[in-house]
Design a binder for these strands. Structure first.
Length: 819
RNA sequence: GCCGGAGUGGUGGAAUGGUAGACACGCACGACUCAAAAUCGUGUCUCGCAAGGGGUGAGGGUUCAAGUCCCUCCUCCGGCACCA
């Protein structure tokens, strides 16, 4: 029996954190990577180390991956569980502007602080693999990948108007705009024509969509991505015009082609210029276009906004289906950057066209009839049967779509996904490694000259002119063209924050490699990430960009698999006690340091996992922490009642014995013990941490009733608990003189013959309601169960003279008598 | 508007279609104590003294049996949104 020891979390936790660090027990050794060896790559979405520090919500995901990683390690897997920093981006830049210091310094400070806060929680990261996206040795490979993308013809310069945040003074990708506002600062986004680098992510739309199928991701995330990619099947139909310029329209309802009463083009469309002098009311048209461009996207896309338009006098389009002449409008409800930027309007069968037609008093022609014959309404948007459609009349919408498309146009697929606007007019990002030469045009920086290091500047302020602050450092900007050696200028735009995070998981496999992005052997061993944990807010950005980047790397042979993250799990947010998001602004922030100080890291870890389902948003309640702390103390104190059952010594007896002179658990407790091993093992696999912990609580409560706890049982219990509470269990492990660390010991196995009690309780139901019960031996026959049910007290007293019309017997569980 | 997800005690939450409320917080009472804290024990969905009845957002349905499956709603949360 071990000596009495007091549970002093402060002493224990500091002590073991130091020891683990010194002995590097969590280091992932990759000197021997054998194919076929069991591996597990568990990854957290790496954080942006902000100056604000952590609140208790941040480590929730890290604790979960830590538990999984520890359990996998104990189960004989080679585990990779790394951490790093996604440190480019606005907050560090703003810090730099305010303090007039290089952002690198601010980043160093915040990383150090962040790391300290994380380390007191006792996470098992292999810090030898720490990465930082702002390290030139790292972004060398971000730039390398960009050059490969450029080489493959997937990056291009564009002058199309893009989303511009007037406050951040930079262009934004479509993904960075929320509700027409800048995702960072909530300033309404404007459209601004600006030279920018764009990546053809749309070329991968199909693969990004189809490959979702095989991923073990939460369905809502997959749906969000499907939604974002927005594949839609339709037809393209060309309307000839009297101007000689053709107008192509995209429609998903080509079955309504005979109902077209006008055509609409987007105000930004090039078609307007192409029509030229054919437009008789040019002045008004120019005016209209000017007014439309002035209003922001939020106003323009507001729900129920009245649709504004203007007829292009002098332009007539011809419906290829019936050669009818229809007027052409420009209107703000048609978007230039979707489909063809022009639509055929069928007011009888489209809500928007209907509203527009009503407003401008345009004809409405019915060509689809409801199959269920309720009709009568002027507007009918569902599929039905064609009428007034010449030889196609009588067909259903579905039949007609293929036939009409074939006759007058072609079937096409369109996506909502836009190409990725990849340049930012800011300082703190990876320089885009190209040189502009008057003679040779865009020339990539030779691979041997990578990385293009971000130079130091005096002012980090964005210029607002559409140029990055880098443009002012002439000594950096002016270089020789690598091709013709003539005068050239460096690209001064930088990459978006999403660049560095699009491939970082690969770097963890081989963090110090200077010769390649990743060693193919290491990549082959570790890929894909087995388990990825992070916030759901990345559904339509990071997770799309990373999948795209990965697929590109696959295409050029850098990686083997087509998808980076096999299994994904979202962390549910921890809300403040007032039910709002934890934020300094609301004064509801709980700091993990103070919780660790008062209750200990093990308690914090247990609490965050016990709060509720892992992926669910949940409210923090400091008052509730005491429950898991009590549990931990019970486990701790239990060590005083442990008897060595490994030797047959006399001493304290357990309440019941399994055999002569051998201390053991009574049958019921033994079964509970085996059930617990199974449940904890299974639940960690499915992230059911809350139920895993409650199962251990049930076992501990039961063992409280036992006079003496066998040592083998106790050691198993603390092994099960070790991933959750690594410090206390390590101390107890040592207290019992066990060799090595508990965290490198073998994960317990259960005895599958000891999962069910021999004695069962059978419920007697009448018409599905529980009325009585009886005990029986496990494996009792159906006939016997039926007989015992009919003999039960309740049935005898209430249904003695009646015969049930039906009897349902669920083996070992229930007899339901139907009267 | 479209696409997802969720509604269970005072609270956080458990429940392969098969005993609803495990586990935990809180609360009440009791034990220990001069006393308090800590700890332990008992109770705690609801109506009822009890026997018994009712009960998982609302209403229908399927089933021997529904928190769980289906339909129609309501509320909340997340994503997308004049996407043709």
């Amino acid at each position: 029996m071990a000596k009495k020891q007091v549970y002093d979390h402060k002493k224990i936790e500091k002590k073991w954190q130091k020891k683990w660090e010194a002995s590097k027990i969590y280091k992932t050794d990759d000197k021997t990577l054998k194919t076929g060896q069991k591996k597990f790559f568990v990854l957290d979405m790496f954080p942006y180390p902000s100056g604000e520090g952590l609140h208790v919500g941040h480590p929730k995901g890290y604790i979960a991956t830590d538990i999984v990683s520890r359990m996998k390690r104990m189960s004989g897997f080679k585990v990779l569980h790394p951490m790093g920093w996604d440190a480019f981006g606005l907050p560090a830049e703003q810090f730099a502007i305010k303090n007039k210091t290089n952002p690198m310094i601010g980043v160093k400070k915040t990383v150090a602080r962040f790391k300290k806060q994380v380390s007191i929680i006792g996470l098992d990261y292999d810090w030898d693999r720490e990465i930082n996206t702002t390290d030139p040795k790292y972004y060398k490979w971000t730039q390398w990948a960009f050059l490969k993308i450029l080489e493959a013809g997937l990056a291009y310069e564009s002058h199309e108007p893009i989303n511009w945040c007037p406050s951040c003074k930079t262009g934004l990708a479509n993904e960075d705009v929320e509700d027409g506002k800048c995702e960072r600062c909530a300033t309404p986004v404007e459209k601004k024509p600006l030279r920018q680098w764009v990546i053809k992510i749309t070329k991968y739309a199909d693969r990004l969509l189809n490959d979702l199928e095989a991923l073990e991701w939460p369905e809502p995330i997959k749906d969000a991505q499907r939604n974002w990619i927005g594949r839609s099947e339709g037809a393209e139909v060309t309307f000839k015009t009297n101007t000689g310029v053709d107008v192509s329209v995209f429609t998903t309802r080509v079955d309504t082609l005979f109902g077209v009463t006008y055509v609409v083009v987007a105000p930004e469309s090039n078609l307007i210029a192409e029509f030229g002098d054919n437009i008789k009311n040019k002045k008004e048209v120019a005016e209209f276009i000017k007014n439309t461009s002035k209003i922001s996207d939020i106003e323009r896309t507001a729900v129920d906004k009245p649709k504004n338009g203007l007829k292009l006098d002098g332009v007539i389009a011809i419906n290829p289906a019936n050669n009818e002449e229809v007027p052409v409008f420009i209107a703000d409800y048609v978007l230039a950057n979707y489909g063809t930027g022009a639509v055929m309007a069928v007011p009888a069968h489209d809500t928007r066209d209907y509203a527009f037609a009503k407003k401008y008093d345009l004809p409405i022609r019915e060509v689809i009839k409801s199959e269920s014959e309720i009709a009568g309404a002027e507007l009918f948007v569902d599929d039905g049967v064609l009428i007034n459609s010449s030889k196609f009349s009588g067909l259903t919408s579905g039949e007609a779509r293929g036939k009409i498309a074939k006759a007058y146009g072609k079937l096409v697929t369109k996506y909502k996904l836009r190409d990725w606007v990849f340049s930012r007019q800011r300082y703190w990002g990876e320089p885009i490694p190209v040189i502009h030469c008057e003679k040779c045009g865009v020339v990539p920086v030779p691979y041997k000259d990578l990385p293009v290091v971000l130079p130091k500047v005096k002012s980090y302020e964005p210029t607002g002119t559409g140029e990055s602050p880098l443009a002012n450092i002439l000594s950096w900007v002016n270089v020789k063209c690598p091709k013709c050696k003539g005068p050239g200028k460096r690209e001064t735009n930088t990459m978006p924050q999403w660049a560095g995070s699009s491939w970082y998981y690969l770097r963890y496999m081989d963090p110090k490699n200077d010769k390649a992005l990743v060693d193919p052997k290491k990549e082959a061993f570790w890929s894909p990430v087995d388990f990825y944990v992070g916030g759901a807010e990345h559904a339509a950005r990071h997770l799309i960009y990373a999948r795209f980047w990965h697929k590109f790397l696959q295409d050029i042979g850098v990686v083997k698999y087509g998808e980076p993250f096999k299994k994904l799990q979202n962390v549910g947010l921890i809300m403040g006690e007032d039910g709002r998001k934890m934020s300094k602004r609301y004064g509801n922030v709980v700091n993990p340091d103070t919780i660790v100080e008062t209750y200990g890291a093990d308690t914090l870890r247990l609490y965050e996992m016990f709060m509720g389902p892992f992926d669910q948003e949940i409210t923090w309640k400091t008052d509730n922490i005491i429950g898991v702390r009590r549990f931990l103390e019970k486990v701790w104190r239990m060590h005083e009642r442990v008897v060595d059952d490994t030797k047959k010594t006399a001493g304290k007896k357990s309440v019941s014995k399994d055999g002569e002179g051998v201390f053991g658990l009574d049958n019921a407790t033994d079964i509970l013990f085996n059930q617990t091993i199974k449940k904890v093992t299974d639940d960690i696999g499915t992230l059911g941490f809350n139920t895993a912990i409650s199962q251990m609580m049930i076992l501990v409560n039961q063992l409280e009733k036992v006079e003496a706890v066998p040592k083998s049982v106790y050691l198993t219990l603390i092994k099960l608990l070790a991933p959750f509470a690594p410090h206390a269990t390590e101390e107890l492990w040592m207290l019992f003189g066990q060799k090595g660390s508990i965290h490198t010991s073998l994960w317990p196995e259960y005895d599958s013959k000891k999962l069910v009690l021999n004695t069962i309780t059978v419920m007697v139901q009448v018409n599905g309601k529980v009325r009585d019960q009886f005990n029986a031996e496990l494996g009792i026959s159906k006939e016997e169960m039926e007989k015992l049910a009919l003999e039960s007290k309740y049935i005898k007293e209430n249904f003695a003279d009646k015969k049930p019309s039906r009897i349902i017997v669920v083996p070992n569980k229930i007899v339901n008598l139907v009267y």
